[in-house]
Structures are given as C-alpha cells and as structure tokens.
Write a protein that binds this DNA or RNA. Structure first.
Lengths: 225, 225
DNA sequence: TCAAAAGTGTTAGATTTACACCCATGA
DNA sequence: TCATGGGTGTAAATCTAACACTTTTGA
C-alpha cells in the first residue's frame, strides 16, 4: 500500500460534453458553474474521480446524475493536464463526450441542474480549457460518424431520412446532397425502412426508418458515409 | 488553496510507447520494470506526473530521460483509469506515443536503461494494461500516417523511397504497390529528391529523398497516402 | 391551387487499383 | 553473367459529385 508514496498525488476530474440534436441543430448541454473558483461561468458538467471508480465509471456516474440514463453512448476525448488549467488548484481532467436524444432530457431536468442546450455554433466562452475539450470532441465525432452509426444515439428510435441527413449536416458542418445521401443510406442494411409515415414534418409525409442493431453487429463494418 | 479538499486525490503517471523503424520492421522500446509491484515484467517506460508539470511535460521529461532528446514527436493516446489497472495502488495513467529514429537511440542507451527494441508483431505480454495502450497507439498512428507525414520522424534525414514504402507497410501492416506508392509520393511536394545516391541497399543505388518541412508547412494539407 | 417537403437516376470526372518489364551494378 | 533491388506507365474499375424534376397533400 505504500509503493508510490514518494510521488505526488493530484485531483482528477471528468468533464462531459453532451451532444444533442433538435430542429436540425447540433447542441451541447452546458450550465453555470456552481462551485468556486469560477462560480457562475459557463462550463461543462463535471465531477471528481472517486477512489473506488474507474474514470469511465466516473463519467457514467456524472452522466447518470445529470440525465437519469445509464449506459449512454460515451467516448473518451482525452486528458487535459496543464498545470494552471484550473484557476483554483492543480486538477487533471479527462474529457468525455456523450450523445443523447434531446427528447430524453426534458426541461424539467434542465431546470433542476440549471443547464441549457446551446447551439453548437454559438457556444460561449467556457470555464478553463472547456472550449478546447469541445473542439477536440467534435473533431473526433466528425471522424467517427463516417464509419460508426453514432447518429442513432442522437435521434429518436424512428426517424425520417431528412432528419438523419440534417444530423449529418449538423455534425459535419456542411451541406450534403440529398440524392447521394439517400443512395448511400440504401446500401446500409442496418438502416431499416418501416412502413410507418411521419406526417409532422410535411404534408405528404415521410417514411420512418429505424436502426437495426442486430444487422449492424452481424455485418462487416465497412460502410462509409 | 482548499477548494476541492473534500475530494480524493490519485497518482497520475504517463506511459510512453516509443516507436522506431529499422530493417523494414516497426519496433517499440520496452524494458523490464524496475519497480515494485511487477518488478521484472516487460513494461512500457513511464513516470509519475509531478505537481508542477503538465502531463505533456511529464511525458517529454520521461522521453528526455530515456533518449536525451528534447522535443520528440509525441502525441497523447488517452487516459487509462481502471481502479485495479495497477496491481499495487490506484494509479491513473496517460499514454503517449513517440516516434524516434532508431539510429538516435544507440545500444549504449539501451543497456543503460535495460531496454530493448522488439518487433511490433512480437510484443510480449506487458505489465498492467500496457498492451491495450500499445494497440490504441498503433490504431491512432495508422490513421495519422495517412494524412500527416509522421513517417519522417522514424527515418533518417535522407532516405530512399523503398525505405519510406517499407515504413508505410510496417505501420499499416499491409503491402503496398510500388508503382502506385511512388506515383503518390511524386505528388507530395514536401518530399524532395536529392541527387545523392544510397548504395548500401542495392548495387544499382537508389536516390535519396528528404522531407522539406518548410514546403509542408506552406502547403495546404491535403495529401492522402 | 399552390407551397412545402418527399422522393427518385444518370452522367462526367476523379480516384484507385492491378499489373510487368527494363535498368544498373557488384559480386 | 546473373542476381538484386531500382525505376517506370497504362488501362479498367470504382467511387464521388453534380444536377432537376415529379409527387403528395394540407392549408
């Protein structure tokens, strides 16, 4: 129990970047920091890593305390460890990003935690190095979305192709050609057409699709959007 | 100075994966662990993060103490933080990979630190989660090598096209077509042909090339190997 | 009846892949 | 003289990108 006692210990925290998608916009969930130093500044939500939990568990716990959802899709962004990154103390922080369906995070919860969904392209100056964390997270996500169907984490179980396309556009920050997009979707067997129609988005109505996880897992992973 | 005192502190270390390239083989530098617990096991080289240094600086210091080289090419792999990853204590470790030219790391230094270059595809079981760190590192490197000229960190200043090709093959773990490879290299203006000839690799001799950093920096980054 | 979103194919251009022979030299 | 690695071009196949009109229906 005393192997490393001559060495220095530090605080380690996790900070989570929570992405959501609503009304064709990519958003992240941020709040006013409730703690000194930096109280009142816009900030990612975070928490300290406990002695008896892995860093992934610390991130999951943080996400759970915020959303009430266990087992969110979540990936590590990286460790941030400049000496003075936190104005109060030396804290090393590990950033994670998570994807949630905005519908699962109602206004109720927003108010409880004093959090807000803000448009990804209107993110204010955040506490400490949190803006850096956000830009690294989006970079990773832009890579991932091309080869992993992470988009389904951000959409309701049933969605139209236009919604899916808007999501891609929001993540990539660029417009996508409708016909080419649909052609590629057609080649992905794990995106299933249902015969349900969504009439909320248009008068004519659009077919609803769903993600078939089983097909995805059985398939070789070789799609490219 | 007492903002977070109710929270738990932990040891944070860095572990470095040092890649080298020699005789058409990708290698990494590992040694026998000199410390309890796990003394004598094959292990990456690492060190603890000090109170007054960033995690990047801790990694650079570790690399410097090993190689005598400052400012090596180095990138973060990620944070590893399972509770029981270290058999002795709870230690969170941040993995980095670095690229060096094997020639810069002579046998002298190897012996001093009791380290060995081992073939990438013959890496033994390593201490703790170090094998996991290595596999993540190579995954990142395979991505990066397609769009960043990291290869030059692993080669001497002057190199033949065959050497460069062998390096790509070693990193990607796959053979590459010679003519297609050379065609693509020709499009990269930052790879400069010299009129020096290397005769060590063949009777006929091969032109030596070099990396032109200035051209690379001035250029738009849009090559793809 | 018309505004608004859904849906649908083709073609040109660019990129990628496959492939085989001659050259120069030292042993 | 021959074994060894160095060096070179073309054609087919695939992938990507650009592009415009018809359909349905609720207001």
């Amino acid at each position: 129990m005393t192997y490393y006692k001559e060495h220095n210990k530090v605080w380690v925290s996790v900070d989570v970047i929570i992405f959501g998608f609503e009304q064709a916009k990519l958003k992240i969930l941020i709040g006013r920091r409730q703690m000194d130093p930096g109280r009142g500044q816009w900030s990612l939500y975070g928490g300290f890593v406990g002695a008896e939990e892995s860093i992934d568990d610390a991130a999951l716990r943080t996400l759970y305390s915020l959303t009430g959802i266990k087992n969110l899709y979540m990936r590590q962004v990286g460790a941030f460890g400049n000496v003075d990154r936190d104005p109060g103390e030396r804290v090393i922080s590990i950033a994670y990003y998570a994807l949630i369906n905005v519908k699962d995070y109602d206004e109720q919860l927003c108010r409880e935690h004093e959090l807000e969904w803000v448009d990804f392209d209107k993110i204010p100056a955040l506490y400490s190095d949190h803006n850096k964390m956000v830009s690294q997270a989006i970079r990773i996500m832009r890579e991932k979305i091309k080869t992993e169907p992470i988009s389904f984490q951000l959409l309701p179980p049933l969605f139209t192709l236009t919604q899916l396309q808007r999501l891609y556009e929001a993540v990539l920050g660029a417009e996508v050609d409708k016909r080419n997009f649909r052609k590629r979707v057609k080649d992905m067997d794990f995106i299933e057409k249902t015969n349900l129609i969504d009439k909320t988005g248009s008068k004519r109505g659009a077919y609803l699709y769903r993600f078939n996880k089983k097909v995805y897992n059985d398939e070789e992973r070789n799609f490219k959007l």
